[in-house]
């Protein structure tokens, strides 16, 4: 139950973030994580120097992918979290950068004007 509430909370935060970024706010995701009491080690562990974070790690808190897909179901012209190209095109870090500006990976082939938080 507690976990479910946490998850709901996270999704609400995400939703707020989505709306916020769509409105043109610009902050990096590391700041966003820090503000929500998620320290570096929560994602990177104790490794020095820190290594890249796998999609499974992101989905551990934000997932599963289907739930993210439900959050962005209404995004036009298509749902960014529901790709016909398979799991390898659903790696979080193709679009979302935590320590730098995110990018619209789909745009390399499609005219999808997504604003990526």
């Amino acid at each position: 139950m507690r976990q479910a509430q946490d998850r709901l909370g996270l999704r609400l935060v995400l939703l707020v973030a989505l709306v916020g970024f769509a409105a043109g706010a610009a902050a990096q995701l590391d700041q966003h994580h820090a503000l929500n009491d998620v320290p570096c080690q929560a994602c990177h562990g104790a490794a020095e120097p820190p290594t890249a974070v796998a999609t499974e790690q992101c989905l551990g808190c934000h997932g599963p992918l289907e739930d993210l897909g439900a959050l962005t179901e209404k995004v036009s012209p298509t749902n960014p979290h529901s790709t016909p190209h398979g799991a390898t095109f659903a790696e979080c870090d193709l679009c979302h950068r935590v320590h730098g500006p995110s990018e619209n990976f789909c745009a390399q082939c499609h005219d999808f004007k997504f604003t990526v938080p």
Binding site: H85, G86, E91
Partner: peptide
């Protein structure tokens, strides 16, 4: 590239 599959996957 950053994703596998080349043209085949699309």
């Amino acid at each position: 590239m950053r994703t596998p599959g080349g043209n085949s996957i699309i």
